[in-house]
Structure formats: structure tokens, C-alpha cells
Design a binder for these strands. Sequence first.
DNA 1: CTAGGTTTCAAACGAACGTTTGATTCAAAC
DNA 2: GTTTGAATCAAACGTTCGTTTGAAACCTAG
Lengths: 226, 226
Amino acid sequence: MAAGSPASRPSSAPEGTREALLDAAEDLFARKGVPRASLRAITQTAGANLAAVHYHFGSKEGLVRAVLSRRLGPLNRERLARLAACDPGPGGTPEPRALVTAFVAPVLEMIQRQRGGHAFAQFVLRAFSEPGEETRELMLEEFGEVIERFTDAFARALPQFSREDVFWRYFFMVGSLAFAAGLGFLIRPISAGRCNPLDVDDVTRRLVDFITGGMLAPGSAEAATR
Amino acid sequence: MAAGSPASRPSSAPEGTREALLDAAEDLFARKGVPRASLRAITQTAGANLAAVHYHFGSKEGLVRAVLSRRLGPLNRERLARLAACDPGPGGTPEPRALVTAFVAPVLEMIQRQRGGHAFAQFVLRAFSEPGEETRELMLEEFGEVIERFTDAFARALPQFSREDVFWRYFFMVGSLAFAAGLGFLIRPISAGRCNPLDVDDVTRRLVDFITGGMLAPGSAEAATR
DNA sequence: CTAGGTTTCAAACGAACGTTTGATTCAAAC
DNA sequence: GTTTGAATCAAACGTTCGTTTGAAACCTAG
């Protein structure tokens, strides 16, 4: 069977098997990791048949890609929209804190607002550290435009730094964001209960404070070794 | 007999089976992830028999714990030693940049100096995001003292911030460090070749700059919502 | 009502996994 | 030379996995 096209029809899908599979997969991928989340567990959680995964997504890998793409597309589009709102046009220098907020806030708002957003954030952190070439290509594909546009904007906002400086600081920003978004719920056991339950607005403010400070930090002398 | 020339059967290799297993496991855990790194691949890489893992470590889980503990113990001991060297005694306030360096530098130096250090860093990032309760308990056990001592020191160095503020910033610091240490090698493809090959001293300086800036960043107003 | 495409279902396949077993090898100690 | 315990080995165990299959159920046009 030439596979036909199991692709989606734009027609009405009330709460179909496909979406139920994506929801269940997202949750189980986050809680157990992709390799340990079996299709049997996923389909059972979704109330679907085992073969439904291969019918709708072709393979487990296809399911992984679909879970990532479903949220990453809208999320990064939101980031780019907010970035555009920060840009004072050519010649102007954007406000660094506004750039950081445009990058960080959509992630944490998604965690707060969308059902399963928390699990998705955990899954993305895991996907970052996953070594599979295929997953990495997908991630670069999804994030490519965001990386380019934000590093451009930061380069204009921080003219005192080289392009390489900006790239590394962008990288550090992604790290603290990914870690906080994916593992923020660990702050309580880590701090032995000394931190309050996770409040997304609160964490956003703290994270923007931290990252903006890091972005604006003076660079220490280096010249000697280069 | 079965293995060809018995004379050249030289387990007289520089290291024993146990260490060879740890090396091979560390590498494969980092490159493929724990679930995808089969004991068959590990023992084959190590030149050992399949059953050797269960003889020396009891189970695959035991091997994971051993791989983590082998390096995390010395690493965190080094961090605590450097922290002690920063401490000006009770009443004094430590230098924030020195605290950050004491926390960050040992990791990156391990990556640079020890064979397999790079793979280990990647593995630790993965272990952080691994959802298994057992792995998480082991991590908290390994890092517990470091967390307590460093957050104490930062609280003294940054008296303008609440204990909760300090905890969150410490958390963000761990995120950017873990991300940079585990995925620093990705900076080239991500930056489309615009960054130089990874130089550990260089990255250390950049990371300490960034984190110190984040630690010292002024906190934005909040009071209203609380 | 019927035809045809879409979606679901139970069942099975082959492969790969972690683990166990019991015999075998090796190096000292007696 | 014999004993003893640690270490290694080939082989197999039972389980679980992703995937495939072919038929049944469903829905919507004609």
C-alpha cells in the first residue's frame, strides 16, 4: 500500500485520535523519555489502537517530530512577532531587556496557559540533549530563523560586543531558559522547600532579570591570548 | 582457544575490565543515551563479555550510577575546595565573580583535561533532564553539599537579595553551565560556522562574565503582586 | 441502499534488549 | 599439587519493543 496520504484533512476534527495521540505522546515523552515511552503505553493512554500511530504518523520517529512541530511552530512565530515589535528599525538600537523578554516570555506563557505545556518544555530540554542526528536537524530547522533574527537583534543592541561574543551569550541564554522551563518544577526539592511553588510570572521576571544582566555584563580582558 | 591466539590475549591492557567498561559506557551513554546504549555495544567496545556488567555493577542501572559517581565526586570536591579558598571568613562578603569561577571552572577544566570529559558533560546534561526518580535521587545526593554551600556563599555575597532570589539565580547559573558544558560543541553548527572551534579557557571566561552579570543584575520591582 | 475511501481493530512477526546460568580460566595461598 | 575465590566466557532465557498485516467498522457521497 503506497501509504496513500495519511495527512490531515482540513475538515472538522472534533477531538480525533490524532490529537489524542499527540497529547498522550507529549506527556509520556516528557515523563519517561522517548525510548522508554512505548507505543503501547501511548496508544493505551490515548484510548487508541496500537497501529494508529503508524497510520497517522508513519513511525515512532514521525510521532516525535509531530509532537515537536505542533507547538514549536506557533511558539517561535510568537517570538518573532514580539521581536518585530521591539525593533526600532534600521539604525536604531533595540532595548536589550525587551529582546530578552520577547525570547523568554512566550515559552513560559505557553507553559502556564496551554494544557500539557509543562510536559512539552521538559520534552524539549530532553530533545536538546538528545544526540540523534535526526532530532537535531529537526530542532535546527525549527529554531533556525529565531536564532538568526535574535542574534542579529542582539548584535545591534550590544554593539560593544563581537558577533562571536553575542553568539555565546545567546547560547547561555538558551541554556538558562531551557533549564528553567524544563526543570523549574525541581526548584522545590533542590532548594529543600525554601522556594515557593512555581509561579510563572514570577519566574519570568527573575529569568529576564538574570539574562539581561548576563547579556549586558562587561567582557573581561582577553586580548593577550589571541 | 576460541579467541584466536591465546598468547596475545592480553588483558594486560593498561586498565582492567571494570575501568574499560566505565569508559565505554560513558562514551556510549553520551553518544546514544542510556536506553539506546545496549550492554552488548558497551561490552563489545570495552572488549569485555556481556555478563561482565552484571558481575561488576549488578545491573545496567548500577553501571549508570558508577559512571556518574566516578567523576562527580572528585569534581564537586574540587568545587568545594575552591569555594573554601574564596571565603573571607564569617562576617566578610565573598567576591561574586570568584564564587562563579569556583563553580564553573572545575567543570570546564575537567572537559579539557580528562579523557572522555566531554562525553561525560553531555551525559550529565542528559541525566539532569532524565525523569527517572532514581537518577534524580542520585544527582541530588551527589550535588547536595555543593548546592547548600554555594547558595550560602552567594547569599552572603549578595545580601541585597532574598534567599529565594539567590536560589533561582543559582538555578539559572546551573542551567547555562550545564547547557554550555554539555552542548558547547554545537555552537559551530548553530552559529553556522561563525564561532571558532571550542576553546575551553575562552568559554570559561565568557561563561563567568555572563553568569556574574546575571548574579549581580538588579531585581526588577515585584511587590505589587505579592 | 450502495460503493469507496478512511479509520480502527486484534493478532502476530522478527528483532533486540537486560538478565541469568553454569562451566571455565586464572592467579595466588596453603 | 591441590584448593579457593575472583573473573571471564558462551549460551540461552523470557520479555518487550516497533512494525506489519488483513479484515472489520465507520462515514460520506452518489
